[in-house]
Lab assay of single mutants.
Amino acid sequence: CHSECLGNCSQPDDPTKCVACRNFYLDGRCVETCPPPYYHFQDWRCVNFSFCQDLHHKCKNSRRQGCHQYVIHNNKCIPECPSGYTMNSSNLLCTPCLGPCPKVCHLLEGEKTIDSVTSAQELRGCTVINGSLIINIRGGNNLAAELEANLGLIEEISGYLKIRRSYALVSLSFFRKLRLIRGETLEIGNYSFYALDNQNLRQLWDWSKHNLTITQGKLFFHYNPKLCLSEIHKMEEVSGTKGRQERNDIALKTNGDQASCENELLKFSYIRTSFDKILLRWEPYWPPDFRDLLGFMLFYKEAPYQNVTEFDGQDACGSNSWTVVDIDPPLRSNDPKSQNHPGWLMRGLKPWTQYAIFVKTLVTFSDERRTYGAKSDIIYVQTDATNPSVPLDPISVSNSSSQIILKWKPPSDPNGNITHYLVFWERQAEDSELFELDYCLKGLKLPSRTWSPPFESEDSQKHNQSEYEDSAGECCSCPKTDSQILKELEESSFRKTFEDYLHNVVFVPRKT
């Protein structure tokens, strides 16, 4: 048989008469490798580009789960590009990614509803959504962080984005990388972005840091009482949809009607710091009717980097990364020049730590249904340095008659930039024990000054392991946590139920 035959053949030295091919099969003959313009397919066939392209389009058009959109890589027609490569849609070739590779997620039936953290986790790592997304989240724990972890990498949506009755959302900033909504599939009414009845939605994105392009379709905003109209108009300008909307697409009466839409800028007039305090004062603000001013709200939190936005980490279910302080308005003076500047002394802060701070007014709604208010920009203030805590785990070892090696770990709280350490030492008198000992005694162990690591005695271990207080009263049991108490109650309830079950099964009433 021919060298490319495997198993047997019907005619000697003829690659077209093989029972099976050793390498690849091409047009009725066995070959060692697939010549151009053919590609290896499933490690035994040679196919042309049209064959591989037909497989790709067949799966793409069917949208069946589990099928493969075949691509070409290293002269092979394979189910998908290997790690580190992405497909070129024009020629199906796998090309190296520039940075992290995109991950295209194809949605069944063309859309997916995100109504819980669990459903959001199914899209973790996706960068391109081939379909439409509907966000409908009523509640949950730590929602802002969970949504950002699972949806934060999405850069492109081919269909539309719909935010509907998501009472738990305060902001859409968890879509931190969303840059493009194509609108290839539109919501009824030709809408590519749809926001309806979101009672706590206050911000779409921080438009000073976020760009969003909507290729096709219109915007729809109705019944978002805490979303200011200025935020919607800003989205029109940034996304390129200005002029597409009709009169009733953006409701003037049901958007922002319960919001404090600040239209003035508060400026800080005085800032002073110490290692654990920050004193702030800002310019006074009074609405047209000074009785509408209820006070100020001061927001602050630790910020290692200057990239904080107002609604980071917030949701309507209680999660809030900001510390909020309510401040009463100052006494009002008739003389504008003698107006008191409101302020606040922030206490209990960490030394040498940068804080993000902003302040906003708290006002009631005027009778004319106009909203007044003022808010400052987010500023960054760093507390002063102070003395560091003591170095940890000092170790001293003498390696000769004239040297001592000293080692330690950095302090747990540096409280500033540590530039150097101060080492103090003092000579001590020799131990009298060394002169009084009889060095001729056998088995004498000389006193040693070398360091030995501390260890816990058996008594201390027994005390720590004991669940009861000892007789001397030195140790006591740790208080039980809520989960331990709940577990004990469940076990007790189970024992009672099981005992009742045994009584009912074992003891049967005697027939009379």
Rank of each mutant, 00 (worst) to 15 (best):
K103T: 09
V104A: 03
C105L: 01
H106N: 00
H106A: 03
L107H: 15
L107I: 05
L108P: 14
G110T: 09
E111S: 14
T113N: 09
I114C: 08
D115Q: 03
D115P: 06
D115N: 08
D115R: 05
S116F: 14
S119P: 05
A120M: 06
E122V: 14
L123T: 04
L123N: 00
R124P: 02
G125D: 08
C126F: 01
C126E: 01
C126Y: 02
T127M: 15
T127C: 08
N130T: 07
N130C: 01
L133Y: 01
G139P: 00
G140L: 10
A144E: 15
E146Y: 11
L147K: 00
L147P: 01
E148G: 05
E148S: 10
E148C: 03
N150G: 05
L151I: 04
L151S: 01
G152S: 03
I154F: 01
E155Q: 07
E156I: 08
S158G: 06
S158W: 14
Y160V: 12
Y160L: 07
K162H: 13
K162C: 13
Y167M: 15
L169R: 00
L169Y: 10
V170W: 11
S171K: 05
L172P: 02
S173A: 11
S173Q: 08
S173Y: 10
F174H: 08
F174P: 05
F175E: 00
F175A: 09
K177V: 06
L180E: 13
E184D: 14
E184Q: 02
T185K: 14
L186H: 09
I188S: 05
G189I: 01
G189Q: 01
N190E: 07
N190I: 13
Y191M: 11
S192P: 07
S192L: 00
F193V: 10
F193A: 02
A195Y: 00
A195N: 13
D197N: 15
N198A: 11
N198D: 02
Q199T: 12
Q199C: 03
Q199H: 12
L201G: 00
L201M: 02
L201W: 03
L201I: 05
Q203F: 01
Q203R: 12
Q203Y: 14
L204D: 00
W205L: 03
W205F: 12
S208Q: 13
K209N: 15
K209M: 09
N211S: 09
L212N: 01
L212Y: 02
T213Y: 05
Q216L: 12
F221I: 15
F221N: 01
H222Y: 05
K226Q: 10
L227D: 00
L227K: 00
I232L: 13
H233V: 07
M235L: 12
V238F: 03
T241N: 09
T241M: 14
G243W: 07
Q245M: 15
R247Q: 11
D249I: 14
A251I: 07
A251D: 02
L252M: 13
K253H: 08
G256L: 06
D257L: 09
D257H: 08
Q258T: 13
Q258L: 11
Q258D: 15
A259V: 11
S260N: 02
C261H: 04
C261G: 05
E262M: 11
E262S: 13
N263L: 10
N263K: 09
N263Q: 05
E264R: 08
L265K: 09
L266F: 07
L266K: 01
L266R: 01
K267R: 11
K267N: 12
F268M: 06
S269L: 12
S274G: 03
S274Y: 15
F275R: 15
I278N: 00
L279K: 08
L279M: 02
R281H: 07
W282L: 09
E283G: 01
E283M: 08
P284A: 02
Y285P: 08
W286E: 12
P287T: 09
P288K: 03
D289T: 05
D289R: 08
D289M: 07
F290L: 03
R291Q: 15
R291Y: 01
R291N: 13
D292P: 06
D292N: 14
L293W: 12
G295P: 07
M297S: 09
L298D: 00
F299I: 13
F299E: 13
Y300V: 12
Y300K: 02
Y300I: 07
P304H: 03
Y305T: 12
N307I: 14
V308N: 04
F311R: 13
F311E: 01
G313N: 13
D315Q: 12
C317H: 15
S319Q: 14
N320P: 09
N320L: 09
S321D: 04
S321L: 13
W322H: 12
W322Y: 14
T323Q: 15
T323F: 10
T323W: 15
V324Q: 04
V325K: 02
I327K: 02
D328K: 12
P329W: 14
P329Q: 15
P329T: 09
P329Y: 06
L331P: 02
L331V: 12
R332M: 04
S333N: 03
N334S: 10
N334T: 12
D335C: 10
K337T: 04
K337R: 08
S338M: 11
Q339M: 07
Q339Y: 01
H341I: 05
P342G: 15
W344Y: 07
L345F: 13
L345G: 05
M346F: 07
M346S: 05
R347V: 13
R347G: 03
R347T: 11
L349E: 00
L349Q: 01
K350Q: 14
W352S: 08
Q354C: 15
Q354K: 03
Q354N: 12
A356S: 08
K360P: 00
T361Q: 11
L362H: 15
L362I: 15
V363R: 08
F365H: 01
R370W: 09
T371Q: 15
G373I: 12
G373A: 10
D377V: 03
I379P: 00
I379M: 12
I379C: 13
Y380T: 08
Y380S: 04
V381F: 02
T383S: 05
T383Q: 00
D384F: 01
D384A: 07
N387M: 01
P388S: 07
P388F: 01
V390M: 07
V390T: 05
P391R: 01
S396W: 10
S401H: 11
S402H: 04
S402T: 15
Q403T: 06
Q403Y: 14
Q403G: 06
W408M: 02
K409T: 02
K409D: 10
K409W: 15
P410F: 12
P410S: 14
